[in-house]
């Protein structure tokens, strides 16, 4: 196989990698915010349940979660509920939402209490205080830790291969049937390029948000 053919094949797999990455973000970013509200709730039982949930999700390997989501329904009911790709997105979204929720919580709790009180004095509702005072400051503060998690996500997509989602590493391993090994190492270029673009993007975003600096 020529270099060009291998690249095309790997690009196919890379498309799947990108799909897992993008869809996970689409679901995990808002879900994480909901979970973070739960873990900060004044209603004690809800708070306890959410914190235990976060503990379980963060405490169990993502690979095992993939197995659970994909295989467990089949074990219990004799027939599978999700297809491989759906199972992957569900497992990834829940897992990453839990990590995101803790980052959100750190950001939200870092806003000085005085600002919220000031909002209350001005007669703003809780929703107004959150959207107009807290949220924009939170976004600014959480960009570096979120960048960290999102870059980790790029590489975690490789885990999906354990339930045979044909992403780039899986493709590279299949290419070994053509008596070539180098594509496996060549995949690093794709990951590096992807993470490189993300790094630049986060740098630009951070700069955009540093509106207090001259």
């Amino acid at each position: 196989m020529t270099f060009w053919q291998v690249t095309l094949n790997l690009l196919d797999g890379f498309g799947m990698t990108c799909a897992i990455f993008a869809l996970t973000l689409v679901f995990a970013l808002p879900l994480g915010l909901i979970i973070s509200f739960g873990s900060m709730s004044k209603f004690k039982p809800l708070k306890a349940v959410v914190r235990v949930f976060v503990w379980i999700i963060r405490g169990v390997p993502l690979m095992l979660q993939l197995f659970i989501v994909f295989y467990l329904p089949g074990f219990l009911f004799g027939s599978p509920i999700f297809n491989r790709f759906t199972a992957t997105i569900i497992a990834f979204s829940i897992n990453y939402a839990c990590y995101f929720s803790e980052i959100y919580r750190a950001g939200i709790e870092a806003i000085p209490r005085g600002q919220i009180e000031a909002g209350q004095v001005l007669g703003m509702t809780r929703f107004q205080i959150f959207t107009r005072i807290t949220l924009m400051q939170v976004i600014k503060r959480i960009v570096p830790p979120m960048g960290n998690e999102i870059i980790t996500l790029v590489k975690d997509t490789a885990l999906a291969r354990v339930i045979v989602v044909v992403e780039i590493l899986f493709v590279a391993e299949e290419l070994m049937a053509h008596a070539i090994i180098w594509p496996l190492f060549y995949t690093a270029v794709f990951y590096l390029a992807f993470v490189g673009v993300l790094t630049l993007l986060f740098g630009w975003f951070e700069k955009k948000l540093s509106y207090y600096k001259v």
Binding site: P73, G74, V162
Partner: peptide
């Protein structure tokens, strides 16, 4: 035809995939 991980073949079969 469904590609599987050979190490998980019994699970795939048992769970009806």
């Amino acid at each position: 035809f469904q590609k599987i991980d050979w190490g998980n073949k019994y699970i795939e079969l048992k769970t009806g995939n």
